[in-house]
Amino acid sequence: MVLKNIKYALKKIPKPPVTRMYPEKASELSERFRGLQILDKSKCIGCGICANTCPNNAIRIVKVPIAPGSDKKRWFPEIDIGHCLFCGLCIDQCPKGALSSGKEYAKGLVKWKHKDLLMSPDKLAREISIEEGDER
């Protein structure tokens, strides 16, 4: 009959839950987790290989100040996270290793409008907070 099922169900009752209270208790991410990319501006040469590799054309090369408030301008990638697949090809293909994976996957990436998801080089380099411009 069904006694085995019932026994199994009863055995599960005292076991602790395997789910988590999500926002309070964050998930454990693996070491190779691919979250929001981190840009090392000192290494980036603005070659545009990442933009060409991106399967979804999420990366654009833009000419921006090398640091917030600076006059000097250089070419850096700008990633539209709304189109990003987080496949990591841009990181693999970067000849100078300027891009790397960050661990952000929810914080700062939940926006109401698509245009807020455009990650400027400053944000990618974490020079300004990625949560900035988050109007709600």
Binding site: S30, R32, R34, C87, G88, S101
Partner: peptide, 11 residues
């Protein structure tokens, strides 16, 4: 996830 860094779409 430990090997590929993603749970569903690995590439």
């Amino acid at each position: 996830d430990m090997v590929t860094g993603a749970r569903v779409t690995h590439s």
